Amino acid sequence: MTIKTFDAFTRLSIIDINRITNFLFEYSDEARDTKSAIRKSLLYAAKEIPGLGGYVFVVERNNDIVGAAVVNKTGMNEYIPENLLVYIAVKTSFREKGIAKMLIEHTIKYCDGDISTHINKHNPAIKLFEKQGFKPRNIEMRLVRN
């Protein structure tokens, strides 16, 4: 299996955006974000909405998505990493087969600058991130205004 990389130069089609949005909504354990929020992160990465862009990494098997990651560029450095790994997910039947590791390694190789991600402190995937060099640093606190 190989990783397809999408950015501002290798555009995502509307069909791909919908497929990846649905995949991340179904298989992302970390956050139960809305489909709208997931879609915005994809549109931002592909520079379909104003911003610095980012990357979308997709692993497929027989035209079926089995893993995906979304990275948004922040435009910052030192105090906030240049890249935010917003979403990473692997289809349930493909977990424990190295796909998440492959996506994280590809993200590290592909992105310039530091990378951060938000992960629940009880998520067993923390060990995978730590093996790839990630270190816990902050606890996020968020005020959500509706």
Rank of each mutant, 00 (worst) to 15 (best):
E130T: 14
L143K: 09
D16Y: 00
G113C: 07
R145K: 13
L143Y: 12
N77S: 14
V71D: 04
K101F: 07
K40D: 09
T74G: 06
F129R: 05
E130Y: 05
R137P: 07
L42F: 02
A100S: 06
I139E: 08
A100W: 00
K73V: 08
I65V: 06
A37I: 14
R137I: 10
V66A: 03
I104A: 01
F25L: 04
N22H: 11
M1C: 13
R39A: 13
V90C: 00
T34V: 06
V58W: 02
N83V: 06
E26W: 01
L12E: 06
S93Y: 12
T74F: 04
I115P: 01
G54Y: 02
P124C: 05
T21S: 03
S41D: 10
F23N: 02
I126K: 12
V71P: 02
I88C: 00
E105V: 02
E82D: 08
E96A: 10
F9K: 11
V86A: 08
E105W: 02
L24T: 06
L85T: 01
A8M: 11
Y110L: 13
H122S: 14
K47T: 11
A46H: 09
S93A: 15
S41P: 07
D33Q: 08
E96Y: 14
F94E: 10
N83L: 04
R61W: 15
Y87F: 07
R19P: 03
G133S: 01
T2M: 12
I99G: 01
C111V: 04
Y79R: 13
K47Y: 11
I88S: 00
E140S: 11
A31D: 08
G98E: 03
F134D: 01
G54F: 01
K131P: 06
I49V: 14
T107A: 07
E82I: 09
L84S: 12
E26C: 06
V59R: 03
L24Y: 08
H118L: 14
F23D: 01
I88H: 00
K4R: 11
E78N: 11
I108S: 03
H118Y: 15
G133D: 02
L43M: 10
F129D: 02
R39L: 15
I49M: 15
R32N: 11
K35L: 10
K91V: 01
